[in-house]
């Protein structure tokens, strides 16, 4: 119990003193997870919207498959991506292993099923009449999808925040693909893992508190922006 209190104190200390290494690690976590969610969203929101909007044979099956992949074990994804981007793997020439890009790739793969499936879920929560209203008002498919997305915007933003949270808290794949290299691919989660391994539990907890803090700030900011519109 004492550790939690000491961790809180240390967390505040690290933030206030702008400890360079912690700042660097935090910014890196933020940048990598933001990139992951943006890239994943660019694919998943349109694809999810299209799947939701159209009725086709096998739609139920597709949605079920997507939902199954919610539970992708991160270590498995990490391993598979590793085999691909290792220098002796098929994409080895791209020199991706042990770089921030590798972490982004792993995280994107991990959150894509969740983002797609939950976008579909968010859109399903919108009244069917909205779709009809948009179409009968003369909207084309893309315009109608935009109208539905707009109606579901709170839910969709919620999905994005969830995806971001999932990305920023990723450890297994980040470790395996990034290598936890100091000053290059060390992020908050892998740093926590290292400090735990080193026995410095207080520092681990402090970093954890900072991670939660970042997630909270992101969530608050996104909600404020949402209210404006």
């Amino acid at each position: 119990m004492q550790e939690i209190w000491r961790a809180l104190v240390q967390a505040v200390n690290l933030i206030v003193s702008l400890d360079t290494e912690v700042v660097q690690i935090s910014l890196r976590s933020l940048y990598i997870s933001a990139a992951s969610i943006i890239i994943a969203a660019l694919f998943c929101v349109p694809i999810g919207s299209l799947i939701h909007f159209h009725d086709f044979r096998g739609k139920r099956v597709v949605i079920n498959v997507i939902q199954t992949f919610y539970s992708l074990p991160t270590v498995v994804v990490g391993l598979l991506v590793f085999l691909f981007i290792s220098r002796s793997g098929p994409l080895g020439g791209l020199e991706l292993l042990f770089t921030p890009a590798a972490i982004i790739i792993g995280q994107v793969i991990l959150i894509m099923p969740m983002l797609t499936g939950m976008t579909i879920g968010a859109l399903s929560g919108v009244d069917k009449t909205i779709r009809d209203t948009a179409l009968s008002s003369g909207a084309g498919t893309a315009q109608a999808i935009r109208a539905i997305l707009f109606e579901a915007r709170f839910a969709v933003v919620g999905v994005l925040i969830l995806g971001f949270g999932r990305a920023i808290s990723e450890v297994g794949a980040a470790l395996m693909l990034g290598g936890n290299i100091r000053g290059y691919t060390r992020v908050l989660t892998t740093a926590i893992s290292l400090e735990t391994q080193r026995g410095d539990l207080v520092l681990s907890l402090a970093l954890g508190i900072i991670l939660i803090g970042i997630a909270m700030v992101v969530s608050v900011i996104m909600n404020i922006l949402l209210q404006r519109y």
């Binding site: 220098r87 080895g92 020439g93 791209l94 020199e95 991706l96 890009a101 982004i104 790739i105």
Partner: peptide, 10 residues
């Protein structure tokens, strides 16, 4: 963007 335009051959 992510990988550079000229992946080097070994």
């Amino acid at each position: 963007i992510l990988t550079g335009c000229a992946p080097a051959a070994p």
